[in-house]
Design a protein around this nucleic acid. Structure first.
Lengths: 347, 347
DNA sequence: GCCCTGTACCCAATCGTTTGGGTAGCGAAG
DNA sequence: CTTCGCTACCCAAACGATTGGGTACAGGGC
């Protein structure tokens, strides 16, 4: 069993060497070179002795010393708007998993989508000497990203994309398209969109995908039917209130670009005496674990969140290896449930 | 502006010293000793020159070198069952904030509440030489905690408590008590509990608090009215199904020890044709941001999640300073909403 | 006996800080 | 003119690992 006590002494290379009557460098080479044949660093018998002892005393190299020497921390920084956003939390699980597999560790920090804080958190991470950043809170204006590029910081975007930068995202445009097709097929001709934050590519792409497919099918979506809002339940509720307050236009369906906004909208519908699934169809996005479990099950576009996380790590490791990586989009799937499964009779 | 490029050269103490015609140690002392009068390490004018240059070039000490020398990483490890549990995500925000204030950085890892993984993740963190651990997935049997204690790893528990170890939690017993009193006052005499995972103190304490108050008010709660389950929506749904399937006993109220379980129970109630708030009262726990926004607003016990996170950091820093710290419980508040606000007419 | 080629190691510098212990120069006290 | 005590610094040894460059010895060929 390992025996590392923070602050106090852990076993070092030198300890091992002394115990074996060898030099630390020899031990290092053997323990280090596993794969590439240990280029004659020691006799096979010696190598075995070294490995046995190392295992026995639970030796694990001091990462600070190693990092100091190799200029690699094996640390990745992850910046998200907020981890209390379930979508990001799940993506992070994928990140953690993939990073772990690659023997990297990850820092996460919340930026609250605030540019000043984004800068500050990125700075802290660089101060910690992370090897690279995974950025989950990119704004479409991309100021910070340009700075980072200029400073040659290796990074990739995750969840949200910005043109010109490597990223791991869901194909949000396609997701929006799927929803438009679905609602159209169900007979809806008057629809509204709760569009999310205009600085996030997720919001913009999902909305665009939806709107352009709906229009290309012959439908009409006036500008005022698109309401920008926050991504959480409160944002969804107030956006829905805005939609319902328009007396001249009563949409039969609402597409919310995020499940939480959709849940908020469901609440608002309820307050306005509308029964979701019968009087009003609602479709969300991300298919978070709640969607299917709600009292009225919510239709939603399933985005492969875990995979996005894993992919982000893979891309970043690519960047760290000097490869040039591009934006990758993973395909979403539409999950139709009670909230939008009924056919709508157009009057 | 700082200028740290991972992998490539950042400005070092020696660089500063060379630029100023001083020795690195002098620069170190000045930059380091800010508070304690820089014990005559340099003339005031020199000190000023040093600080100015350091600021100008954005010097920031290499944490690996520093850690190597001082045997302190200024890193805290945080282990949670899953960050996709909103409760833990919010607590983590508190942790991040407090750690940041104290100039510590935090690692988070998900253990999925699986003992083998808890061990593995703790091991990884120690391998990374964290200064201490904040453990959010403690099981009541406490095996791992004893090991850690024996190995003299500094740690505190968070969210869940285990007798004999320092912890930052909500006063869960009190929370359960509040719910019992509330439901009793509303006239409910037949109640059931969705009790959560039996290895988690949160579940056990909330349930105990509830049951003992309800009984002391004169109510009866048979053992079969207490259903243990997972903490998520699915767990809540199936627990509720179990409760509803008992034909001999139709509770008028359900206390779910977690909001997500409560949401699942709402779904189940719906499926069984029960209107929550009218036919059945439901109360959750934690008052997550969703509770108030649901189509039928959920009554819930508000636990000070952010504060729990902040407190956990404070306690751990205490431990690191050699203080002996104890378990601290923060008071919860009951928030009554639509799901349980009606008076129940007992037949 | 001499040179050559491996094999199996060891040496020492280095990464960037921190920190206990100097020391040079100077003014003042004796 | 010492001696003392400052002030304002410098020196060098760690911390634990990596890595380019030795070196000693053995065995083989001529």
């Amino acid at each position: 069993m390992t025996d590392i006590r923070p602050g106090s002494k852990a076993v070092t290379l030198k300890d091992l060497a002394a115990e074996l009557g060898l030099h630390a460098s020899t031990v290092s080479r053997i323990l280090h070179a596993e794969t590439d044949t240990a280029r004659g660093a020691a006799a096979p018998a010696t190598a075995q002795r070294i490995r046995d002892l190392a295992r026995k005393v639970g030796y694990s190299p001091n990462p600070q010393a190693k990092g100091l020497r190799t200029r690699r921390s094996h640390l990745l920084g992850v910046i998200v708007p907020r981890l209390s956003d379930l979508v990001l939390a799940v993506i992070y699980e994928g990140i953690e998993e993939a990073a772990d597999d690659a023997h990297y560790s990850t820092f996460v920090m919340n930026s609250r989508d605030d540019p000043a804080m984004q800068r500050r958190k990125a700075e802290i991470m660089l101060t910690r000497r992370v090897d690279g950043l995974i950025i989950g809170d990119a704004h479409l204006d991309g100021d910070i990203l340009n700075e980072l590029t200029e400073r040659q910081v290796p990074f990739v975007l995750m969840n949200r994309a910005v043109p010109g930068f490597p990223s791991a995202t869901c194909d949000d445009t396609l997701g929006g398209t799927l929803v438009a097709q679905h609602l159209w097929d169900k007979g809806h001709r008057s629809v509204s969109v709760i569009a999310g934050e205009p600085y996030a590519s997720t919001a913009v792409d999902r909305t665009n995908g939806f709107v352009s497919r709906f229009r290309s099918l012959g439908g009409q979506i006036p500008e005022r039917a698109i309401v920008w809002s926050r991504f959480d339940t409160l944002g969804g509720r107030s956006a829905a209130d805005t939609i319902f307050s328009d007396k001249n236009r009563r949409p039969s369906a609402i597409f919310a670009v995020n499940d939480f906004a959709a849940i908020g909208a469901m609440g608002a519908a309820n307050s306005h005496g509308l029964l979701v699934g019968r009087d009003l169809a609602i479709v969300g996005f991300n298919d978070t674990s709640l969607a299917a479990q709600l009292p009225i099950a919510l239709s939603s576009v399933r985005s492969p969140m875990m995979d996005i996380g894993r992919l982000a790590v893979k891309l970043l490791l690519g960047v760290l290896n000097g490869e040039t990586v591009k934006a990758v989009k993973l395909a979403p799937i539409l999950c139709v449930r009670e909230s939008s499964s009924q056919n709508w009779m157009s009057e």
